[in-house]
Design a protein around this nucleic acid. Structure first.
Lengths: 220, 220
DNA sequence: CAGTGTGAAGTTGTTCACAGCA
DNA sequence: TGCTGTGAACAACTTCACACTG
């Protein structure tokens, strides 16, 4: 093994993605516990309530920076603050959504994202009939009119809920807009510059797992 | 040529879950290719279009039972049929949804699931004001009135979109109804009999990943 | 040779085992 | 004793290497 060990100085070390995905669950639970008045919670208790392995929880907690008291557990207050910070629930991230069909509308209407630090501030579509309308208070604009605009609006997240065929060109546009991260619901691989974060969400994946398991059960 | 290609599930051995989750992507792509008139598609091409590793695609294809022709690839027709069969897009699965809030309504309105073999046929809530209303043609009923009923309706899937506190009691009810699989959007671990399939979907997980990466980028 | 198919190696995340502590 | 914290073993999935094939 080469002893180069390139710099990688004290950059906030990468948290494993599965851990990141569990963080919102921890936060939800910890908030509920605090509402009940609990001052402390132990990893085994968290594990039991969320159906996880206790060691897993301990390791995940380490990434929040909160350290636990032996035999007592972790301070719920510290945990809540650390998790909210970790998840960026305090900072607010504004998002543009392109593709105001059923899926796009559903995401807009599901306001839960607001409390998670993301606010969809505008939607775009290519369907004339939608221009000027509002979905749950979010205005729908003509995509064409925004080709050039918007690069200084400091929108950090772009959400793509268009058909697959339009996704790449929308992504290109978002890059021009100066968007930093793209949440892509179209079932294609987007080609974007390296520094752009792309998160793909495949709507049917969970359903596929369920139906596959249902089918398997039948054959056993 | 075409023919009924038996595609017999040789030995419905457990398919790795990540593979199952990719299947809908393959199907979507293969359908698009067939519409374009392509008769064959190779694993490297699929891989490039979906941003996957070519070997991965080859291994996934093996689970469909379709075998490829060397130097040519896989028959798009065979693939489509095999994937539709694998994913159960032909069989129809009916679902009940409990919790007709923003998230529940969004899922109902997003009709894409119909073409994926799942149809939400009724929704339930505890909010009087919603009883008797319809969401996108799906009627909303009083949950209480359905406590005893429905065990012989042969609904296979129950979708839980209630607040966390209600989720377990709803799950219990669904078990009584005879539901075989539960798609749970509440951030808690459900306790159900062994033979019941539970699929948890954590809405905020993807958002958490995006925001975490955004935050990391800033620190580098 | 460009593709399928497959066993081996690599990587990543989970679970176990146990030390330390109050 | 019940918990945190951590290094090691384990499991699952991905990627690599390569034999084979038309």
């Amino acid at each position: 093994m080469e002893s180069l060990t390139i710099t990688t100085p004290k950059k906030q070390q990468a948290v494993p993605e599965p851990t990141v995905r569990r963080m919102p669950q921890y936060l939800h639970l910890v908030r509920a516990l605090r509402e009940k008045g609990d001052m402390y919670v132990s990893a085994p208790v968290i594990a039991r309530m969320l159906g996880l392995d206790p060691t897993q929880v301990v390791k995940d907690m380490a990434y929040t920076g909160v350290s636990g008291k032996t035999r007592i557990g972790f301070s719920t207050e510290e945990l809540q603050l650390a998790l909210e910070d970790f998840l960026g629930y305090n900072r607010k991230h504004e998002a543009f959504l392109v593709g105001a069909g059923y899926l796009g509308s559903a995401l807009i209407q599901y306001q839960g994202f607001r409390e998670a630090g993301m606010k969809i501030v505008a939607a775009f579509d290519t369907d004339k009939r939608k221009f000027g309308t509002e979905i749950q208070g979010v205005p729908v604009f003509s995509l064409e009119k925004f080709r050039d605009l918007a690069s200084r609006l400091h929108i950090s997240i772009g959400i793509i809920t268009t058909p697959a065929g339009a996704a790449q060109s929308v992504a290109d546009l978002m890059v021009v807009w100066g968007i930093k991260a793209i949440w892509n619901f179209a079932p294609v691989a987007l080609k974007v510059p390296d520094q752009i974060i792309v998160q793909d969400t495949h709507i049917y994946a969970n359903l596929a797992v369920i139906i596959n398991k249902l089918g398997q059960q039948k054959n056993s």
